[in-house]
Amino acid sequence: MAFDFELPIIELEEKVEELKKYATKNKIDLSKEITFLEKKIDVKRTEIYSNLTPWQQVEIARFIERPTTLEYIDAIFDDFTEFFGDRYYGDDKAIVGGIASFNGQPVTVIGHQRGMSTKENIERNFGMPHPEGYRKALRLMKQAEKFNRPIICFIDTKGAYPGKEAEERGQSEAIAKNLVDMAGLSVPIISIVIGEGGSGGALALGVCDKLYMLENSTYSVISPEGAASILFKDGSLKEIAAESLKITGQDLYDLEIADGLIKEPLGGAHHDKPFVFNETKAIIEQGLKELAKIKKEDLVDARFDKYMKIGDFVE
């Protein structure tokens, strides 16, 4: 599978393959030509991947092969024990969570979970939670607070599910309650956007002390498609909307919303998952170390100050 913007690379790669086949078949030496083309591929790759447009980053952020929450948990944490259910209605498979060990320290880890295949995506509702997902997350966070465990959240959702039953069961209230209750938790919270951070459905796992983003992840108040159709009255202007909305990791870092960026290999996290897991682990270590310096009783005040500063207005 490839993105449209990768086509020039793929064309070159196909040419190399053809040359190689031709050389073997006719027993002639084409190694010079092949090396030349391979160098050209490298140049092209760097050129394309270093200049990704915001829309191209959206495509990478949504890519089905991009690592998901459970893969991060598996790679970074030990002894993960998953817990299910919100205790009121059901278990939402679009959000996973439980307890684990991070470098020997007990933590609570929660995240949106997309499917890694179409079948699994259907089971997990494409990572779009219902109210019970948010209520499960909050239940696990309160549990973390009781046992004084830091909370690590992975954000990866198009948004909260816009469905009839979601509304009936109080989608708004579930998200809203998470925001207020997370504001008051007395344990450190680190949130990491690993894929798409879609609006309130993402923020419901994102009221935190440290927000980190993968370079090619996005975090936005509305999808570029939605913004294009509402603000520009033309859904096809999604690329312009993606740019105007300022949604990439770098944008959020520049706007001082993200506290740090996690490096990705050229072309996106799916090209080298172990690398990304290592980088992510390192930033969590660093974040927990910094937050450990804040006294427990000052943590909520520090979070309050962090959010009070956000906004751009005149008086």
């Binding site: 504001a183 609006s199 923020l203 994102g206 108040v221 909305l245 300022k246 956000i310 906004g311």
Partner: peptide, 26 residues
Amino acid sequence: GARMQEGILSLMQMAKVSVAIERHSN
């Protein structure tokens, strides 16, 4: 809802008002 023209800053206002509500409630 959120004011889309202000992008992520508008989304973050949901969190900002929420931390103020938490303190008031507390």
